[in-house]
Design a binder for these strands. Structure first.
Lengths: 340, 340
DNA sequence: AATTATGACGAAACCGGTTACACAAGCATA
DNA sequence: TATGCTTGTGTAACCGGTTTCGTCATAATT
């Protein structure tokens, strides 16, 4: 069970540790005969150098920490896979830790990353709204991390590298697209704009879209509660019951989109409204159900974030970078299918 | 950027490294005054001990390696989250590596785990069929890993701890359930039984079910190709075109189930057949589409696998364990809705 | 009072690598 | 022949922790 060490190899080959180390790190400096002999002994002994020892000695690790809310949804799943692809290409290991979207877990995760002396951190903050006291603490924590960190998906307004989507613009485009298709009363089911920075951005986009279209905001058509399926389900039920005027609905994230669908399918009113959601909802295309949504390519975001981190590690002093990705509007339901 | 070390703390506190180390590991052995002083200095300096150094010194790490095919599907996503929950509870870090279902990647991943000197490995093998030559190599690799490994989901018949589902039994039950509902001609769309051990198990279950029901196997109703959506889509199209007799379909995994749905929805024959799949297909319940499937609780499997590993780490000499989980049959479509 | 036990702490070795530096041999140059 | 350069290798220190063992003062036992 015990692992073979570099000293074991050195002893068996009748050389010093240094020479064995050189075979691993700069083989050209070792005479060919010696090298081949050592390589053969290493192979025979199933020798694999210890990253632990190497990291300690080199004062640099080869693993990157990834902190993500959770993985059981396609958006973060894809994000994660994008990250992994790039790390893999660069021979970096991936230390994973979820924060379950909880601020407390968030701090714990960062502590863990510091303990593990990772090379850098890719970080989707649970903290989704700049709460005064906590932000200072978070800033301190990130500073004392001892390695660079990239903030993904949520703009927490700290002085650091970030990457996220232009959600405001995306929702604005969605509104304008619906208006162009003839809709004038567009409901909006969203997360809490006061608690969640993404919700706030998207609400801004909604209002901006209406403004540009010259339409008034009807507050009775705006629901801002939780980013949860059940919330959209209830909101939609209430809307269908109380409001007659609206012909279209925008939902502020994937879960809300599902809640919307649940409500309209239950009420057998699936064809009654136009709907644009944020992020693709799986299965709809297969079932030939119209699916219009704001596409945010999280796989791509993951790749860019990882590349950003690698670049930051290579050039610690380079200027802070803030990448804003533009989502696109996908209209799978053709023009003629759209309800008005 | 440089991290504070134990020596720095010792120096500032005017004590030896040993004492600081004791504050971290066995604080009761340090006099209260000294301890408080050291603790305060540690806090002020944002000191976090290096896991790297500790691991090297203790010759034991606190991270567990997890090797999984991919994370962008619910089954493995849930599995992963189950694993993470247990590791988290036990203060173990998680080093992730996907193998993309490729044998080559598989070996690389194991090498990486060995390099990183993880405490144990949770492993969903890409290798899904005992190919003679490779199995020996894999065995060797696992033996030289230097830590225990648990094999998840796929029974590769090596002498090691394993956990997987009784897929044969599950498909058998599905067949019998359909027979009981009056179906006699049941099509089966599956992966390749010759290349994939899961496919083989499921095919066995299909045949066993027919046998128990006293029905003959009609080979024209059996399609065994790839575990991919597109395969089931094509298979189902062909079935609908060529065969008139069958009234029910069993699909061998989640992707195949989706391909089945795509085909029947495209042909507007969604109500023509009874269908039982393996693993839940998302969204169907929300859309009020009948959804019968074999439920394999991968979250639970993840938790049990992680517990198994922890137990194996604690008791290296205990008897090899092979856990067989029983899937259950979920019939969301009520009896009266079922087609015959 | 002498002996033993206990408590608090430090010196130094160790974990498995890397690396600065030293050294010797061989060869080319002056 | 003396000098310098290159090549191949080894010695020893170092990375940041843990741990064994020893020391010394104080408390408990006889």
């Amino acid at each position: 069970m015990k692992n073979v060490t570099i000293s074991d190899i050195a002893q068996r080959a009748g050389v010093s540790k240094t020479t064995v180390s050189r075979v691993l790190n700069s083989p050209e400096k070792v005479e060919e005969g010696t090298r081949k002999k050592i390589e053969q002994i290493m192979k025979a002994a199933h020798y694999t150098p210890s990253a632990t020892a190497r990291n300690l000695s080199k004062q640099a690790s080869s693993t990157v920490g990834v902190i993500v809310p959770e993985l059981n949804n396609a958006f973060y799943g894809d994000l994660f896979m994008g990250i992994e692809e790039i790390l893999n290409k660069n021979n970096l290991s991936l230390l994973y830790c979820s924060n379950e979207d909880k601020v407390k877990k968030d701090f714990e995760a960062l502590d863990m990353m510091k303990t593990q002396r990772v090379k850098g951190v890719l970080y989707v903050p649970a903290m989704n709204y700049p709460a005064a006291g906590l932000m200072g603490k978070l800033q301190k924590k990130l500073e004392s991390l001892g390695c660079p960190a990239i903030c993904i998906d949520r703009d927490i307004r700290l002085h650091m590298d970030t990457i996220h989507f232009n959600d405001k613009k995306a929702v604005e485009t969605a509104v304008l697209s619906l208006v162009e298709a003839g809709h004038r009363d567009i409901a909006f089911i969203n997360g809490n704009e006061k608690k969640n920075i993404l919700a706030a951005e998207r609400y801004e986009g909604y209002r901006e879209g209406l403004r540009k279209a010259g339409l008034p905001e009807n507050e009775r058509l705006v629901y801002q509660g939780e980013f949860q399926k059940s919330y959209a389900y209830l909101a939609m039920k209430e809307l269908m019951e109380k409001e007659r005027s609206f012909t279209a609905v925008i939902t502020g994230n994937n879960s809300l989109g599902k809640g919307y669908l649940q409500a309209v399918y239950e009420a057998e009113k699936a064809d009654a409204y136009a709907h644009i959601g944020v992020d693709r909802i799986e299965m709809l295309d297969l079932l030939r159900i119209p699916n219009d949504y704001i596409l945010r390519d999280s796989y791509e975001m993951g790749k860019q974030a990882a590349e950003m981190l690698i670049s930051r590690i290579a050039f610690p002093e380079k200027k802070i970078q803030n990448i804003l990705l533009e989502p696109s509007l996908v209209l799978e339901s053709s023009e003629r299918d759209r309800k008005r």
